[in-house]
Design a protein around this nucleic acid. Sequence first.
RNA 1: GGAGACGUGGCCGAGAGGCUGAAGGCGCUCCCCUGCUAAGGGAGUAUAGGGUUUGUAGCUCUAUCGAGGGUUCGAAUCCCUCCGUCUCCGCCA
Length: 428
Amino acid sequence: MLDPKRLRSELADVAAQLKTRGFELDVAQIEVLEVQRKEWQVKAQDLQATRNSRSKEIGKAKAQGQDIAPLLAEIEDLKTQLEQAEQKSDEVQTQLDDILACVPNTPHESVPVGASEDDNVEIRKWGTPREFDFEVKDHVDLAEARGWFDNDAAVKVTSSRFAVMKGSLARMQRALIQFMLNEHGQAGYEEVYVPFMVNQDSLRGTGQLPKFEADLYKISKNDEHDTNDRDLYLIPTAEVPVTNLFRDEIIDEADLPIKCTAHTPCFRSEAGSYGRDTRGLIRQHQFEKVELVQVVHPEKSHQALEELTGQAESILQKLGLPYRVVNLCTGDIGFSATKTYDLEVWLPGQEAYREISSCSNFEDFQARRLKARFRGGNGKPQLAHTLNGSGLAVGRTLVAVLENYQNEDGSVTVPEALRPYLGGAETI
RNA sequence: GGAGACGUGGCCGAGAGGCUGAAGGCGCUCCCCUGCUAAGGGAGUAUAGGGUUUGUAGCUCUAUCGAGGGUUCGAAUCCCUCCGUCUCCGCCA
């Protein structure tokens, strides 16, 4: 959520910034509502002040044994006036809140202006795609030939876009998770285990709600005396439970930066993306991911984004997977992000770089709704900055390892870094 | 899942319709005293929002005692719903 004060004091400026990411802010409506908000809020508060002081007078008079009736008569219509003013004030405030909840973050100045992913800017490349002297297979052909991947079984058990993996592939996925968690742990990220279902408050905190409910799997409690806000959702990313650990918390400044890592499955319905990446493991309703989360001092968040991105990169480097880093343009960054680097890994089966990690700085956008704060030197709580990034998407890493390390005979060489996690095996 | 007890500031803990944004204690900050240490004395110590304002200064108003409703001129206090914690029983990995 943007700072409401910014919408009052620099509305035109904010609207211009949002326009670069293709969002039209309804300036006229906000101005109208803002005038009403001020009018009714002031009125309601004035009436509350009157009521409070009158009630105290009544209390005193009663204590002294005086007749209260005339005082009561005096404030007879105060109550209805107050109710009206409060109702009106709430109404306007709710309208403003609803608008604000759907306004995305403003992009950082270092974000390239552009309309779509075509305008993203490549920052750097690492590694050289391997030259194959045989015909490369994509991960699906590779895995099916070895009996590692069984799409029919997944469809039977659940439906399309779910995976059943067997044998060495299943083991390698587990190895990748262990490897990533250990690496991040050694780099100072504390490992945390979190629930895979979250409530609405958490989803609002990180910005998935109210705008992106369609992408989420909702668990209905199916119980007649449960209210709506008890409904839980499967997490679309560990970002939600992990970042929400800091909701309504005031952190000691000395404890910043906080760095966490977590492995979770992720569940996404992605209703709009049917038809894309229908083959194989690239786009699934359920996938494994290791996530990195940081809560930092506001002055250090952009520096922290570089560090966090570098941490995700280090996994690709240790696995020897060629990749590039892309600075997402204003038209392509996510709703809550002020700046995002995507890591794209080279997939020989597609002869393309494909997203394997997305590292974002949200500045105080999430922290404001989360009330994730720290107490600074002046003793006053202030909003922290939050960041997160995939470190990495495990399913896609698995795809990348298969395709980049495939051999002509259909076997796959195990990247050296991963061998200790697979009993020392050199190939699978 | 059943039965009971309970949810107050950083923590402990009073308060049971009005003078309570909340006694007291602990902790913390500042000051005084004491040749270090210990002890003692004094002051301060929630969060959010609004108005005023060049101002994150000052002044002022409002809201918040688990959350949300309700009763009342007035609610931490009474009523309802929900959430959570503890104890006992049941069930279970």
